[in-house]
Simulated scan of single mutants.
Amino acid sequence: MKTFDLQRMAFDEMPPDFLFEVAVRSFYTFILVFLFLKITGRRGVRQMSLFEVLIILTLGSAAGDVAFYHDVPMLPVFVVFITLACLYRLVMWLMNHSEKLEMLFEGKAKVIIEEGEFAWEKMQSQNMTEFEFFMELRLHSVEHLGQVRLAILETNGQISVYFFPDHLVRPGLSILPEPCNERFETVPEDGDYACIRCSEVVTFNAGDKLPCPRCKNHVWVRACTAKRVT
Rank of each mutant, 00 (worst) to 15 (best):
R214A: 07
E106M: 09
V45Q: 00
M9T: 06
I152K: 12
F133P: 00
N156M: 04
A119V: 08
V80F: 14
I31S: 13
C195D: 08
L32T: 01
Q158D: 14
Y69K: 15
H70G: 09
R222S: 04
K227F: 06
L6T: 09
E200Y: 10
F134K: 02
V53P: 01
F78T: 14
F30T: 06
L54Y: 03
E143V: 04
M9G: 08
E99F: 06
G64V: 07
V201E: 06
H218Q: 13
V66F: 06
G172K: 08
G41D: 07
Y28R: 02
V45K: 00
E130V: 05
L57I: 01
S61M: 10
F34R: 05
F68Q: 12
D17H: 13
L37F: 10
A23Y: 12
C215M: 06
G60T: 06
I112C: 07
E21T: 11
T203D: 08
F184S: 00
T230K: 12
K2M: 12
E182R: 09
I113K: 06
V91Y: 04
A223C: 05
R214Q: 11
V33D: 02
R183H: 12
K122Y: 03
D71Y: 14
I196G: 03
E117I: 13
R43D: 13
A109G: 08
V219S: 11
L168F: 10
L168P: 06
Q124L: 14
I175M: 08
V221R: 00
H144L: 07
P76T: 08
E114W: 04
R138E: 07
A226N: 15
V33Y: 02
D12T: 03
L145S: 05
F184C: 00
D166T: 11
L19H: 08
N156Y: 02
L19M: 14
I39E: 13
T203E: 12
E21S: 11
S26V: 14
V148H: 02
M95E: 14
G64H: 06
G191R: 07
R149N: 14
P211I: 04
T58P: 02
T40C: 01
W220A: 01
W120H: 10
P188A: 02
M92L: 09
L210M: 11
T29I: 07
T29S: 15
F164H: 12
F11P: 01
